[in-house]
């Protein structure tokens, strides 16, 4: 009986939390389907329209180029970061090199520095390199932010792979690289996939550096969202439509990796 009550309370609380978290997202979806005059109304009785989506992709908002920027920056960051991080994670996991712990700590310690502290030096550096408002600059910055985290995450997965299989492969006649290709990567694949998507999401949502380092050409979606605050006021229905465009890909990805996601989050921590 006691257990039953506890269970009911637990469920009720979970439902409440879900509602609190999901309601704004739900409301954003609704607003994206509303006409401007309905945007401030709290009535659910309105005629839905897709005009807002057509508007944000047209001039002057040009959301399409922002989607492209975001996709390229996030995609290239993943493509460079994950292979490098996988090799680094393997090394940290397997080779008993002197100073390994300090090195690993140094990699992680980059995550302790607040972004605001380094955004200005980055701005100055890229300005003198002539890379301001380019995707390359964003990719470089995102690599620096994301790679240590991905190393840490993938290391957790590789740590969980028994060394036995690797040693068996080496004795069967495989070189170290062959072992990584034939044994480690296939076994760590779910973890690496999870880390890749995680890395993509982090980069996709990155705001501060994009805001400071881009102006017109390389603007990404989260920064683009700000441009809907105009002299005519906040264009909520357009902002919501853009918000949906930001959310949907992440939402789909999160669904794909849902199963591995919590494992990925805790893999490093359990060790």
């Amino acid at each position: 009986m006691k257990k039953h009550i506890f269970w009911t309370i637990e469920r009720a609380l979970l439902l409440l939390v879900s509602l609190i978290v999901l309601f704004p997202i739900f409301w954003m979806f609704l607003t994206s389907l509303k006409r401007p005059r309905d945007a401030y109304s709290i009535s659910l009785n309105f005629k839905p329209t897709l005009d807002n989506f057509a508007m944000v992709f047209a001039e002057p908002w040009n959301l399409g180029s922002m989607v492209l920027n975001s996709a390229i920056v996030a995609g290239v960051t993943v493509l460079i970061s994950v292979p490098c991080a996988s090799l680094a994670a393997y090394s940290f996991s397997r080779f008993r090199v002197k100073g390994r712990k300090i090195l690993f700590f140094m990699v992680l310690s980059t995550q302790f520095i607040p972004a605001v502290v380094i955004v200005l030096p980055f701005f100055l550096m890229f300005r003198s390199l002539g890379l301001l408002d380019t995707r390359i600059a964003l990719i470089i910055v995102n690599l620096a932010i994301v790679t240590p985290f991905v190393i840490w995450m993938i290391k957790g997965f590789i740590d969980a792979i028994p060394v036995d299989s690797e040693e068996a492969a080496m004795i069967d006649g495989a070189s170290r690289l062959r072992v990584i290709r034939d044994i480690v990567l296939p076994m760590a694949a779910p973890g690496i996939l999870t880390s890749s998507i995680f890395c993509f999401i982090l980069t996709w949502n990155e705001f501060l550096f994009s805001l400071i380092l881009t102006r017109r050409d390389a603007v990404t979606l989260p920064v683009g969202l700000v441009s809907f605050r105009t002299e005519r006021g906040d264009l909520w229905e357009l902002m919501s439509a853009a918000g949906v465009m930001i959310t949907v890909p992440i939402f789909i990805m999160a669904m794909i990796i849902q199963k591995h996601f919590t494992r990925g989050m805790t893999a490093g921590a359990i060790k």
Partner: peptide, 20 residues
């Protein structure tokens, strides 16, 4: 010499099979 060049075969306690 690395293990692969020693021409040996080994059976491990936990078998060391390739689960995938």
């Amino acid at each position: 010499k690395p293990p692969k060049d020693r021409d040996i075969a080994m059976v491990f306690q936990n078998y060391g099979l390739y689960p995938h």
